[in-house]
Structure formats: C-alpha cells, structure tokens
Design a protein around this nucleic acid. Structure first.
Ligand SMILES: Nc1nc2c(ncn2[C@H]2C[C@H](O)[C@@H](COP(=O)(O)OP(=O)(O)OP(=O)(O)O)O2)c(=O)[nH]1
Ligand SMILES: [Mg+2]
Ligand SMILES: [Zn+2]
Length: 528
DNA sequence: GCCGTTTTCGGCCCGACTGTTTTCAGTCG
C-alpha cells in the first residue's frame, strides 16, 4: 500500500504510516490472530484505527478494504517495476504515465528512444539518457547480499580506502555495521582534513574494482564495485551443500562471481566524523527517532552535529554545525541526548530509543564472550577443514572448547558420515583431548553429531551410536516434506525429536534458508 | 495515517546530488 500510495501521489506522512505499519507487522513476535480477536491491534505502536480495521477485516474476512483493492487493481504492475530503475521515483513515473501513457519498462524504453521523454516539462536530454542507462542497469546482479558476502566486499573496500594518503580513518557503516542478515549496499564514512578532500576523492575514484560512478559531489560519492575490489581472486565462503543447493547452486555462484555491489562514501572532516558515523550507521528509522528526540530537547541532529536550535537559526548543514555540541564518539552523542549508548545491532527503531532513555537496554553478547560452539562440521561430512584444522582455529580464536557435529548418513547430499566413521572420529577426538590434558592445555573437543530428524520425529543413527556421543544436534533437512505439512504435524514431530533422550540441541529450528526458501509451518513457541 | 503527561490538531528528520530550472523538484542517503 505504501508503494501504491506513492505512485498515487498521496500525502508523504500518510505513506510513511503505511510503511511503518508494514515494518511493524513484519517484525511482530506476538500472535497476530490473537491480537485481532482481542481487539488489541491498536496497542501496537504505529498501528492506529485505520490500519487496525484493515488488518482486522483482512484476517476475519480474508479481504483487504475495497479502496485498497481498487488502488491495487488500478495501478499497472509495470509502474511498480519502474521503481527499481535507479534514479527514477514515483513522481516522474506518474508524470510519464499521465503524459505519455507509459505503464511498463518497455513503454518507457520506447518513449525514451523516440525522444518523447526529453520533451516533457522537468525532463531533458540528460534525464532521458539516464533513464535508458538505468533500464540497462536492471539487468546486472544486484540483489541484497548475505552478511558474510557483504562484509567481504565491505572490508576489502574499507581497507583500500583506509590506506589512501590523507585518510585519517575509514569506517564501514550502514546495514553492514548493524550486522543485518542481508546488506543492500556498502556505506563508508571517511575522515579527511578539509584541504585533502578533493585529493582523497580522486584517489577513491581511481581504486581498482570501481565498475561505475553513479555520482560524485564534494562530500558524497556513489559507486558501483565489482569483484576487482578484492586483492585476491574472489572466493565465496563455504556453505553446507544443501544450503548452497537451495540458494541456486552453481548458477548462484557464477552470478556472485560476476556480481557488483553499490557503495556510498561520505567524506567529512574528523571533528564531525562521529556524527556522520551515527547518521550513516542508521537505520533510517533509528535516525528519525533520534532526531525527534533531539527536537524535543530543542536540538537539531544531522550528520554534521547536534546543534541548539537557538544558535543554528537560519544556518543550514555544515554552517549550522559550527555551533554543535562536541562529541568525539557516538557514545557522547547519545549522552547529550540523555540516552545510553545504543549498539549498532539494536538501531532499528524497535523501541531501543525509549529503552536507552530509561537505561534498560540489554547487554549484548560479543565475540569475546564466546567460549565455544556446537554446530560445526568437518571434512568427515560436508565441511572443508579437518578435525585438526578446526580445533586449531578454535584455539586461535581463544575458545575453550569446540563441538564437532558432522552430518548423519541419511543426508546424502551433505556426505553424511556412517556410524563407523563417526565412532572412529570419536576415538581421534578423545586421544587429542588426552594429549592436551597431559600437556596441561585447557582446550577440549566435544564429540557430537548432527542427526537428521527423520519422518515421524525419529533420529538418524541407532540409539547405541547416539549414546556414545557427548551431545546430539537434531535437525530437519528434508525441508520439502516438512514444508508440505501443516503446523500441528510439524510441531508434534519436532517435539518428539526433542523428547528423545539423546537430543541436546535443536539445529536451525525454523528450516528457513536465507535467500533460499521460507521455513516450514511450526509453532515455535510450543517448541521453545 | 499516527500520535499525545503542554497538545485530539498540527505536527511528522534533515541534507547531498542531479538536472532542470532562474529558484527548485525529484530522488536518494
Ligand atoms: N536521517 C536519515 N538517514 C537516512 C535516510 N536514509 C538513509 N539514511 C541513513 C541511515 C542508513 O542506515 C544509512 C545508509 O543508507 P542505506 O539506504 O544504505 O540503508 P542501510 O545501509 O541501513 O540498509 P541497506 O542494507 O543498505 O539497504 O543512511 C533518511 O531518509 N534519513
Ligand atoms: Mg546501506
Ligand atoms: Zn543442518
């Protein structure tokens, strides 16, 4: 609805309300049906009378409100597709629709090629060419990247920029810094003394791996990166065979190899860098909540500073920022606003600003607290590294222990290990532990298995084998079958698997494969 | 369309870049 309303030129705040409502519903952890039945939808922040009644109607009658449906039916789907064209938004899509009858990307191409678009008021030859270029850009592989892939690009780009002469520091911001599951683009804050700005900007544009420049101003550069940004040949991280299969297998791998990723760079003098980092880390919605908090205190927050409105007056941007409160770190910005420091991972406008105000933010785990992990494979099944290499890596990471849980025989695609091989692995592992004990080393391995949950909730491997192990990770892999069944059957079978006396851990319990497939129906609350 | 411990009306974040314009709209971050 938010998008449809944009194309219909509705009030921007009304549009935002639909977008916020949608975002809130998407992240809701409560049972929506229960909220509908008890009439408590309006208690959700961002859901008012209008949206609540629409949701209520949809869930009870299975149909959205009539005017919503009509708007949807009256909007050509091609107009929605046109929104994917970079640099083209709802206003101009609507103008071309009204003036030239353009209702699809193909229509648009024709209109541009015939020169009609350039004739329109507010358009010109340049925008027409840019639209054609934009249509061509749609063909490139430009989907959101998994965090691990996005970080590979991000770290490669960051380190190249950080070593440019005159760069004081370069920090990856945006969704990568917030460690979202997927990354849309890379956002980099670069601190540079004013007098070096243009030299550094030039050096960035000359880096290897820059496929295209979308825009370059005095403080902001918009780029498209390709795999040349990497020092070494681009290599994807190793994935479970069944996971790789679900996200497209070899076809996916070759698309990644020829892929590109957008990058935004903000160049700022060092004393404003903390403000720019906070801005560029986002999320957008967190920024809006923070800026609202500033307004409530008579302050203006932007990427250059936190400025008392009384001193800012008519000054804008950087000029107003000379009156900014000082901050040498993000934490100081939060402190000026009476807020506890909000770690990037929580900056999603999910109530964290209020929680920071009331000093009741959760203490997040960090990597230094991790002492070990249990769901790891070796080359006995579909892992890449041997038991020894894995143990060595865990020790170098400072872990105290590592659990090894290779796949079980049923999972042929992941080279599930036989009972015999599994027990042999146990013997190797115990002698390694024995050796470390005699050497007085603190590190230990645990022996487990990732046992496939079979039909009707039984576990792979006979009980005699499972009983030999330190622990058992029970996981569903026959996702096709589980997706085809109803919630009740799936839940009962998961519960049965958990009830098995050998089961220690329930592996990847939703069955979702990120960017691959949705999870199966399950009552996760019952399972938990 | 949503929201509110000053408010049930009148706000709703703020700025860079581009292309068109001769002062700004559209798009994006
Ligand atoms: N204040 C404000 N900040 C914004 C706005 N749009 C974007 N930002 C800031 C916060 C974002 O996290 C940051 C980078 O923008 P992106 O569009 O790249 O978003 P983000 O990196 O969060 O997600 P992504 O995975 O790239 O889609 O810029 C906005 O409308 N207002
Ligand atoms: Mg981003
Ligand atoms: Zn698994």
């Amino acid at each position: 609805m938010g998008v449809l309303l944009e194309l219909a030129d509705a009030n921007v705040f009304r549009i935002r309300s639909y977008q916020n409502g949608s975002r809130t519903l998407g992240t809701l952890t409560d049972d929506l049906w229960e909220l509908v039945q008890t009439g408590r939808l309006v208690e959700i922040k961002g859901i008012g009378k209008g949206l609540a009644s629409a949701i209520d109607q949809a869930m009870r009658d299975g149909a959205w409100p009539k005017d919503w449906v009509e708007l949807h039916e009256n909007t050509p789907p091609g107009m929605l597709e046109m929104l994917d064209i970079p640099g083209l938004g709802p206003k101009r899509i609507r103008m071309m629709h009204d003036a030239l009858g353009v209702t699809s990307i193909e229509d648009l191409r024709t209109a541009c090629e015939s020169g009609q678009v350039a004739e329109l008021k507010g358009f010109g030859a340049k925008s027409q060419t840019k639209l054609l270029d934009g249509i061509d850009l749609l063909a490139r592989f430009r989907s959101r990247r998994r965090l691990d892939v996005g970080l590979m690009y991000g770290e490669a780009f960051q380190s190249r920029v950080a070593t440019i002469d005159g760069v004081l520091h370069a920090t990856l911001a945006g969704s990568a810094r917030r460690r979202r599951e997927t990354i849309g683009d890379l956002d980099l804050v670069v601190a540079v003394e004013e007098e070096n700005h243009s030299a550094v900007a030039e050096a960035i544009l000359a880096l290897p791996g820059i496929a295209d420049v979308k825009g370059a101003g005095s403080s902001k550069i918009s780029l498209i990166l390709d795999t040349e940004i990497f020092d070494d040949a681009f290599a994807l991280p190793h994935l479970d065979a069944n996971v790789l299969d679900a996200i497209g297998g070899a076809e996916y791998e070759s698309m990644e190899a020829g892929g590109t990723i957008d990058a935004q760079v903000r160049l700022v003098p060092p004393h404003v860098a903390p403000f720019t980092l906070a801005y560029f880390t986002g999320s957008k919605e967190h920024n809006i909540a923070m800026r609202q908090r500033a307004i409530d205190l008579g302050l203006r927050l932007n990427e250059f500073g936190l400025i008392p409105e009384a001193l800012a007056g008519d000054l804008k941007g950087m000029d107003a920022a000379v009156h900014s409160l000082k901050a040498s770190s993000e934490a100081e910005i939060y402190a000026h606003l009476g807020l506890a420091y909000v770690p990037p991972e929580l900056r999603e406008d999910m109530g964290e600003v209020v929680a920071a105000l009331e000093q009741r933010l959760p203490d997040l785990l960090d990597s230094t607290m991790v002492r070990g992990s249990l769901h790891n494979h070796t080359n006995l099944s579909d892992g890449e590294a041997s038991l020894e290499v894995m143990a060595d890596a865990a020790q170098r990471m400072g872990w105290s222990w590592l659990g090894v849980a290779d796949h079980s025989p049923t999972l042929v695609i992941a080279n599930g290990a036989s009972a015999e091989d599994l027990l042999a692995q146990g013997a190797t592992l115990r002698s390694a532990n024995q050796e470390w004990a005699t050497q007085g080393k603190e590190f230990r391995l645990f022996h487990g298995v990732e046992s496939d949950i079979l039909e009707d909730g039984r576990l792979d491997h006979p009980d005699e084998v499972l009983n030999e192990l330190d622990y058992v990770v029970a996981s569903v892999h026959a996702l096709g079958r589980w997706r085809g069944r109803d919630e009740q059957t799936n839940t009962e079978e998961l519960l049965k698997a958990i009830d098995h006396p050998a089961t220690t851990v329930l592996g990847h319990p939703t069955g979702r494969i990120l960017q691959g497939r949705d999870g199966y129906e399950v009552d996760l609350m019952a399972v938990l």
